[in-house]
Design a protein around this nucleic acid. Structure first.
Length: 1104
RNA sequence: AGUCCUAUAGCUCAGUUGGUUAGAGCACUGCUCUGAUAAGGCAGGGGUCGGCAGUUCAAGUCUGCCUGGGACUACCA
């Protein structure tokens, strides 16, 4: 009868075909949805999806990041947890806006003039989802399971409402405030820049600027009583260095380090050659003067600005200089002292002052530096802002008025203000040194022009208030790798500054704060309902005609700005025009994705905080931070318990991938060529997720060939023979482990060990470890050892108990391996699973059981390792003597030093003997006298005991004579003499091994020694012939394309030497080759001639 | 500039609390096995474990400094 094949046999199926098939299956059976619904009521495992932005194409690094996310979600699912994965889209922010500007050919200035804000935002809304289809496609192709049917979208009204709710909570906790801060600002673009923008690649550039060391003249009236300045008739100056001379007119103070040593010196100005007295840090003296010019006769000065003679008049600490007043360096109409809102032109102390650069005296222009502003505020110095928002000097700065401080307008003949100021200083005896200085300076990534620091109004979140709590909570988070949490993230938390929330853009979540014009009254809105209610009041007060908040209302600009509210005093309140930082949007996702607290309260409670999140390490200060900050402020909780931060994907040479370099990897092409599973497996197994991955196509090919190829063939082998025998796995009854062969129990033991170890690795967020363990099991243990050694067991005629055991064992291995690998290789594992079980249920709906400790036999695993080691040694001996494995040999000898070792080896000797084709194994005892022994000290034990004598002892011990060794073995200890000192060495402090058997061919490794008897008797020789003949016939069968089950007749031409062999081994040969008979004849047509160990043999085979 | 990561064979990576021949895979060379193979086995070449110092009986492993690569943060004038 023709049996229907139980197991699908495959040939030349590509990974891509498998994946298409499985993807189709998942889709039409809604497997992903089932994997969640089926586990309703089970313990939830909470995962947060960090929203990607769909306005860019997905890259290979997204595949890595999403593979990591997918792995743990799938693993937890197969462990029985319910893992919801709500997808999301990040939709606000600058990248979208810029893309739209580029698309429309406009700049920020045109928004509101050439194009209405409404139209512009509409365009953003469309553009941000530009590549959604491509993203959906890669999601499906790479096998990433995430719910994209009901994603959260940050531009959604509901999402915004939740964000508003959060902001109001923070507002009520007094975490929100408006402040005046120095911020990066691009005059060319007319906009403030976020720190994220400042850190776009290429923003910090090395530029050469004109730097100046200016002479600030001391007001002698302020030092009348000061003995430090001995000669009140002379002029004294502070030296202060700046790389931005254009800020000098805005100078209002000088800062010194309280503990820094300063010197007062007498010298000349190198430009005017006038005699001057200068104050600068002692440590920096050598920067401007050569030591040999000290005490040089002042008369010898050549008036060339070189080799300035100088003389140290006095020294003091910076503290002593504080309070001294100086004359304004560059007085103009606009910076008259009366116009300054503080007590300016004084020396103050600041802890930021160092002597690593400049003069140790820092020029302070509070409007153009964050440090400056801070220290000025602390000292009541006041500020000058002589530059406007366009980056040009305001009126009243003399000839500089109207000039741009940098070339913001691409003027063809732009003359550097820095240079002109320096020239003026030189002329006026106010410059001590002017030179070009190369440093790295931030540039506006859009205009490529240098930014300046400028005082701007902003809303801030007072994260500094919860800093300590954030640090504390961070310690409870399991970071992978740990160093990112303690180091990078921890350090960042320690040095927190308040979070600047304001963005002066158009497409983003509007700040829900309305204020009166006099800033006296304000309201923070926390919901649409509240806004409606407030609007009603406003209508009643006559500030608005009617409610505009209907169901279709868009909470974005410009509509939200049409709403005017009324204050308690009756005054109108208008919305603060800022948008909020987009990072706040993504950090709000734990709440806003559920429209909490307006809906889904219970769902939220069950899904906060997350058990697991994963993103690139570049998110440390991004999403990881905003999630943490908001959760801390809102609920005094962490937002996530475990976090994996993955490294970058580099090209195969270790370079960063970039479009300009053309070394990017197209994930679609990669997946199409090698398959998603192979790509995923390669990325995970090649290096730890947090290490950078050098992406090399060769590695993909190797993974495909080795792991997937091997597994595919192992399955196919199983299928072919199972079908031949009509074997069918019985889900209920299996042959008990105890009744299976040693090698079956071994591989099952290995399998259960693997299950435990791999699960532990997954649970520990170590996917690379898991992948490598699985790979090792499949290739080394299952394929290269178990299947190879067991092949014969599958060949017999009937389905014996032993054969059934072999089938069951192999089946169980494949089944569990499929489950273990399913998180990483979701397609192939499901394909394998379904083929094995003949089911249309998915592996991803299955339950992974723990490894059964009763099935694990470590002693068995150990002795199999020994069997492998011994086999390997014997094979290497055969190699040395050039005796083929096909040639049977009589015996191998193993020294019997360790009784346990022998007992263990004896249990696996059958495997060894058949593997190396030897008849017997003989254990030779100690007393034979032909074993030579060696003693190796146990360094760990002896090192502690002997300390400094260890080296000498080691030498001594290794040179112990055979008698000494015998003594040691017998008595359990021996005395040795080291530098006239006696030491007692115990038996357990050394290792005794045999490494030679005299008179035999010996190989030795890892403490195991084997000798091989290479004498070939006539009988062995003939058996060797028989094996050779079998080999030729098998080859011939294969070449003739016979089925493995075909019976044959063998026709052989009579041959003097081999006829005897053919007779003697007829049964053996027939058995091996499925031959019905061997027919000898004098002459055979069609025969092929074979060389059998030097004998010619004519053979012809035909199907019976 | 600061913080953190990283450096082991030509390439990709292992390497336990420090313990004595530093490993695997790929690639290369030779031989070999095959009744599942895209394979497998055996042998070979290939390493001042980035450099220098230190701690120690003992350092790839611990400490410090330096160099290369990378990330993040950053107006230090």
């Amino acid at each position: 009868m023709s049996k229907a094949k139980q197991y699908r046999e495959v040939k030349n199926l590509t990974q891509a075909q498998i994946e298409n098939e499985i993807a189709q299956f998942w889709k039409s059976n809604a497997i992903f949805e089932q994997s969640i619904h089926e586990r309703e009521g089970k313990t939830p495992y909470v995962f947060y999806e960090g929203p990607p932005s769909a306005n860019g194409m997905p890259g290979i690094h997204h595949v890595l990041a999403r593979t990591i996310k997918d792995i743990f979600c799938r693993f937890k699912t197969i462990q029985g947890y319910q893992v919801k994965r709500k997808g999301g889209w990040d939709t606000h922010g600058l990248p979208v806006e810029l893309q739209v500007e580029k698309l429309l050919g406009i700049t920020k200035k045109d928004i509101g003039t050439k194009i209405s804000v409404a139209e512009y935002n509409q365009k953003c809304r469309e553009e941000v989802m530009k590549y959604k289809d491509v993203w959906d496609d890669i999601t499906q192709k790479m096998g990433y399971w995430v719910d994209l049917e009901n994603p959260y979208i940050t531009f959604d009204n509901n999402y915004i409402e939740s964000v508003w709710w959060i902001l109001k909570e923070l507002y009520q906790k007094d975490f929100l405030y408006k402040g005046y801060k120095i911020q990066p600002y691009s005059p060319a673009a007319g906009t403030g820049l976020s720190s994220a923008e400042l850190n776009l690649p290429g923003c910090y550039k090395d530029v050469k600027d004109t730097s100046a060391v200016a002479q600030f003249k001391i007001e002698m009236a302020s030092v009348q009583e000061n003995a430090f300045f001995a000669n009140k008739d002379e002029a004294y100056y502070f030296l202060a260095w700046t790389t931005t001379p254009w800020t000098l007119p805005s100078n209002t103070a000088l800062a010194v380090g309280a503990a820094i040593d300063y010197v007062l010196i007498k010298t000349f100005n190198p430009y005017t050659h006038l005699p001057v007295n200068l104050i600068l840090a002692k440590d920096l003296l050598s920067k401007y003067f050569q030591p040999e010019n000290e005490q040089k006769d002042f008369a010898t000065y050549a008036q060339d600005g070189k080799n300035l003679p100088y003389q140290i008049i006095n020294t003091c600490k910076g503290k002593a200089l504080a309070g001294i007043r100086y004359e304004q360096l560059l007085p103009f109409e606009a910076n008259q002292k009366e116009k300054i809102n503080g007590d300016a032109f004084r020396v103050i102390t600041g802890d930021f002052v160092t002597t690593s650069d400049g003069t140790g005296i820092v020029h302070i222009a509070p409007s153009f530096g964050a440090d400056d502003m801070k220290v000025a505020a602390e000292n009541g110095i006041g500020a000058l802002t002589l530059v406007d928002l366009e980056g040009k000097f305001i009126d009243g700065v003399g000839a500089f008025s109207g000039r741009y401080v940098k070339d913001y307008k691409n003027e063809p003949n732009y003359i550097s203000v820095d240079i002109d100021i320096s020239i003026q200083l030189k002329k006026e005896n106010k410059a001590f040194k002017v030179e070009k200085y190369e440093h790295s300076y931030p540039h506006c990534w859009r205009t490529d022009k240098p930014i300046i620091y400028y005082p701007l109004d902003s809303w801030f979140i007072r994260v500094t208030a919860v800093k300590d709590r954030m640090v504390e909570l961070n310690k409870t988070i399991n970071w992978k790798p740990e160093s990112t949490g303690t180091g990078r993230f921890g350090q960042w938390l320690e040095n927190l500054i308040d979070w600047n929330l304001s963005r002066t853009r158009y497409w983003g979540t509007p700040l829900p704060i309305w204020r009166t014009e006099d800033k006296d009254e304000e309201i923070c809105i926390g919901s649409v309902e509240e806004l409606k209610a407030e609007m009603q009041k406003s209508i009643a007060a006559g500030w608005m005609d009617k409610s505009i908040l209907d169901a279709t209302f868009d909470l974005h600009k410009p509509f939200v700005d049409d709403i005017i509210l009324v204050a308690a005093s009756g005054k109108p309140m208008r919305r603060e025009s800022d948008l909020i930082d987009v990072w706040f949007d993504s950090g709000a996702m734990p709440y806003a994705q559920w429209h909490f607290p307006f809906e889904n309260k219970e769902t939220f409670q069950q899904s906060f905080p997350a058990d697991f999140i994963a993103e690139g390490v570049d998110q440390t200060r991004g999403w990881f931070y905003t999630l943490h900050a908001i959760a801390t402020m809102l609920f005094d909780s962490v937002a996530y318990k475990n976090v994996v931060s993955n490294g970058l994907v580099l090209d195969k040479n270790g370079n960063k991938m970039s479009k300009s370099k053309g070394n990017t990897v197209d994930p679609f092409k990669t997946i199409e060529k090698y398959g998603a599973d192979v790509t995923r497996w390669y990325m995970i197994s090649n290096s730890q997720p947090w290490d950078n991955l050098k992406f090399d196509e060769e590695g993909l090919a190797e993974t495909g060939r080795k792991l997937f190829g091997t597994l595919y063939n192992t399955y196919n082998f199983f299928a072919i023979y199972a079908n031949i025998d009509g074997f069918r796995i019985d889900t209920q009854e299996r042959i008990p482990l105890a009744e299976r062969a040693e090698i079956d129990r071994w591989v099952i033991s290995k399998l259960h060990s693997l299950t435990n170890e791999a699960a532990a690795a997954y649970n520990d967020y170590e996917p690379t470890k898991a992948a490598r363990l699985i790979e090792d099991f499949v290739i080394e243990h299952l394929s290269n050892w178990y299947v190879r050694l067991c092949r014969r067991r599958f060949w017999g005629n009937e389905l014996s108990q032993d054969k059934r055991a072999a089938f069951e064992t192999l089946f169980e291995c494949l089944q569990t391996v499929a489950q273990l690998m399913s998180p990483i290789a979701p397609f192939f594992s499901d394909w394998l699973w379904q083929n094995l079980l003949g089911t249309s249920s998915s592996i991803h709906l299955s339950q992974l059981e723990n490894g059964n400790d009763k099935a694990i036999d470590k002693a068995l695993e150990q002795r199999m390792e020994w069997a492998q080691e011994i086999s390997s040694l014997v094979l290497s001996l055969r190699k040395k003597t050039k005796i083929k494995v096909r040639q049977p040999l009589q015996k191998i000898l193993v020294p019997a030093i360790d009784k346990n070792f022998i007992a263990q080896v004896d249990k696996v000797k059958g495997l060894i003997l058949s593997e190396v084709n030897v008849k017997e194994i003989e254990y030779i005892s100690d007393t034979s006298g032909i074993i030579s022994k060696k003693v190796k000290p146990n360094f760990k034990l002896l090192g502690k005991k002997l300390g400094g004598k260890m080296k000498a002892a080691s030498e001594h011990i290794q040179n112990l004579s055979n008698d000494d060794i015998q003594h040691l073995e017998k008595n359990g200890h021996i005395d040795i003499l080291l530098e006239d000192e006696k030491f007692n060495i115990l038996l357990e402090e050394v290792e005794i091994i045999s490494d030679d058997i005299q008179g035999w061919l010996v190989a030795s490794n890892n403490g195991i020694t084997v000798a091989l008897d290479i004498h070939i008797s006539e009988e062995l020789k003939n058996e060797g012939f028989a094996r050779e003949i079998v080999n030729r016939i098998q080859t011939e069968r294969k070449e003739s394309d016979f089925e493995v089950t075909d019976k044959i007749f063998i026709h052989v031409q009579n041959q003097l030497v081999l006829n005897g062999v053919l007779n003697t081994y007829k049964e053996y040969i027939c058995n091996e080759t499925l031959a019905k008979d061997i027919i000898l004849a004098d002459n055979i047509s069609n025969a092929k001639v074979f060389d059998i160990n030097g004998e010619e043999l004519y053979i012809f085979i035909q199907k019976a």
